[in-house]
């Protein structure tokens, strides 16, 4: 059934929330056990950055959206992913996981993703980002967040993720609607687009960046005690939702990602040898090859009220 994107846009604009809606000092922070703490810290840091990477993806998609409504929706999603990252940072702050006001260090694979997004994302066809993003969102929503809620008993954390999940359910609805639309776009155009435009150096580099990013995430969460099956179930969901729609199945990038997902969920597939060696290799990438961190990356904050506009007395 087709989703009414105009109605969705109205709904999105009505469901906005802010960090200030949450009492970050409420009791419950002590629910985080000492043994949980280090793993959770690493996990949250990844999560923050992945939200931020997703945000940048939506920013690119807003530029390529075929209609004003969809562009507006993506503008919201761009901001909402940023909001998730901000809220997760605020949680980290609550749990004493931030050194002063410093943001956690992004890992190498995140840095690579950032570089890639900054260089290529704005020029990618919608069919590429429109497929990768749902995949990431399904993985986040279906596996990571649910796992987090099972493990962490701080009520503020639950309050935050309830809001985030509500946002994400709208993201997924739109993501899959767009996949469907992409598939229904005239086949010829799609083919031209995917052969002519998709196979660019940008995309190849993107794939090289995406593979270790996913595997590092997988390794990190498995390290925290997440059953891999959870992640795989999420991947299956990506497949299943896609299979139900004839349009989606026709999107070449979707087919590629599905094939990729199949390899990811097969633990014995030689793919993991490749992927894990890429993680290993990326750890050895010298930091100096990266350009300066783009300024959009520094817009993150754990402060519900921006410090720059606080009255002098409060801000100091």
């Amino acid at each position: 059934m087709a989703l009414d994107l105009d109605a969705m846009l109205v709904k999105i604009s009505e469901r906005q929330w802010a960090l200030a809606d949450i009492d970050w000092e409420a009791p419950g922070a002590e629910q985080i056990s000492a043994e949980q703490w280090p793993g959770l810290k690493a996990f949250m840091a990844d999560l923050v950055w992945i939200e931020n990477v997703g945000a940048r993806g939506f920013a690119a998609m807003a530029r390529m959206a075929p209609t004003e409504t969809l562009a507006d929706i993506y503008r919201y999603f761009h901001a909402e992913e940023q909001r998730h990252a901000n809220a997760e940072l605020a949680l980290m702050k609550r749990w004493g996981m931030l050194d002063g006001d410093d943001l956690p260090e992004p890992n190498v694979n995140i840095r690579m993703a950032i570089e890639w997004l900054d260089r290529y994302a704005d020029d990618m066809p919608l069919s590429v980002l429109g497929t990768v993003i749902p995949m990431l969102e399904v993985a986040l929503d279906g596996a990571l967040l649910k796992f987090l809620l099972d493990e962490v008993h701080d009520p503020v954390c639950h309050q935050v993720f309830e809001k985030i999940n509500a946002d994400e359910s709208r993201h997924l609805a739109v993501d899959f609607q767009v996949l469907e639309m992409l598939g229904n776009a005239r086949l010829r155009r799609l083919l031209i687009e995917s052969v002519g435009k998709t196979l660019t150096p940008g995309l190849l580099i993107g794939a090289l960046m995406y593979i270790p990013l996913l595997n590092r995430m997988r390794n990190n969460i498995v390290g925290m005690g997440l059953q891999e099956e959870r992640l795989y179930a999420a991947m299956h969901r990506f497949k299943n939702v896609g299979e139900r729609s004839s349009g989606t199945r026709r999107v070449p990038t979707y087919q590629v990602l599905k094939w990729h997902a199949d390899m990811v969920v097969n633990r014995r597939h030689p793919y993991h040898l490749l992927a894990n060696s890429m993680v290993w290799a990326s750890d050895r990438v010298p930091a100096r090859i990266f350009g300066p961190i783009p300024t959009w990356f520094k817009e993150l904050t754990s402060e519900p009220v921006a410090v720059e506009t606080l009255p002098a007395a409060v801000a100091s």
């Binding site: 906005q16 200030a20 009220v305 720059e308 506009t309």
Partner: peptide, 13 residues
Amino acid sequence: DGIRTSDGIERQF
């Protein structure tokens, strides 16, 4: 006190 944007942050004016 100000303006809240969709990134969840309020700025005060």
